[in-house]
């Protein structure tokens, strides 16, 4: 049996890595990837505590979240692609047509 505190430590480290990536990076694709890491952090919690509580609902959530993450990436890439077609760049700093 793994001490549940380990799940929390692992997941919060992952969350912080993801959040750092979102804040620090200028490239939209990398930001999307960092968001995926954050979602994974939440998944770690769900799965870990699911086994801790012997409750399946956590794992069900993890499956749903994986699917949602995939959908998110699909839409995100589509939007970023059309942005790239217009401007030849996906640097976030250059998204300044609308006042940021």
């Amino acid at each position: 049996m793994i001490d549940p505190i380990n799940y929390l430590i692992f997941s919060s480290v992952l969350l912080m890595i993801g959040a750092y990536g979102v804040i620090k990076n200028k490239n939209a694709i990398v930001v999307l990837m960092s968001v995926e890491i954050m979602l994974t952090a939440a998944n770690i919690n769900f799965i870990g505590f699911s086994s801790y509580y012997h409750d399946l609902s956590g794992q069900v959530v993890a499956l749903f979240v994986t699917a949602i993450a995939a959908a998110e990436v699909a839409i995100g890439l589509a939007i970023l692609l059309s942005l790239f077609e217009q401007r030849d760049t996906i640097e976030l700093d250059l998204l300044n047509r609308l006042r940021w």
Binding site: L32, M38, I75, I79, S82, L83, L92, L98
Partner: peptide
């Protein structure tokens, strides 16, 4: 498109 990209990134985060 720009609005969409911003909305998406902040929303996902």
């Amino acid at each position: 498109t720009e609005a969409g990209a911003k909305y998406l990134l902040i929303g996902a985060f």
